[in-house]
């Protein structure tokens, strides 16, 4: 413990930095190879998402595109944004936002198509006039 105090003293002397010695224990520093691997994976997924538009999967195309985008977003969030190594609560907060975006879009989509016939009718009536 006295050693700890001495270390803190020297740390303060050099950096004016209280708690400096604690930080090294919990801060995760991304190694270069991992940063580059994630970047290459992101490039690869970008290539996939462009290439897949050349294949006709019918209505599946949009879901494949969104799936690839989500895979890319996950890589960015876990590694570039450090969520994999961070306080779990930050991850929870982040995921909660997607939960609410999901609610937002799906509840709106529930009845979206229902108004279309009425709009169409009105448009046709205006045109006929």
């Amino acid at each position: 413990m006295s050693e700890h105090a001495i270390h803190t003293t020297t740390a303060h002397g050099q950096h004016g930095d209280h708690g400096h010695d604690h930080d090294h224990g919990h801060v995760h520093i991304m190694p270069p190879w991992l940063l580059i691997t994630v970047f290459v994976a992101l490039l690869f997924l970008t290539f996939i998402t462009v290439a897949v538009t050349r294949v006709d999967l019918g209505p599946l195309n949009i879901w494949v595109a969104m799936g690839v985008a989500t895979a890319k977003a996950t890589l960015v969030a876990l590694y570039f944004m450090h969520l994999k190594y961070d306080n779990r609560f930050n991850l929870l907060v982040f995921l909660a936002s997607f939960l609410f975006v999901g609610f937002f879009i799906s509840i709106i989509m529930l009845d979206t198509r229902q108004y279309q016939p009425a709009i169409q009718q009105r448009t046709d009536a205006l045109k006929g006039r």
């Binding site: 520093i29 991304m30 270069p32 940063l35 580059i36 994630v38 970047f39 992101l42 960015v76 590694y79 570039f80 450090h82």
Partner: peptide
């Protein structure tokens, strides 16, 4: 994004 993550490093 890569260079920004590297800047943090």
């Amino acid at each position: 994004s890569l260079t920004m993550a590297w800047a943090v490093r």
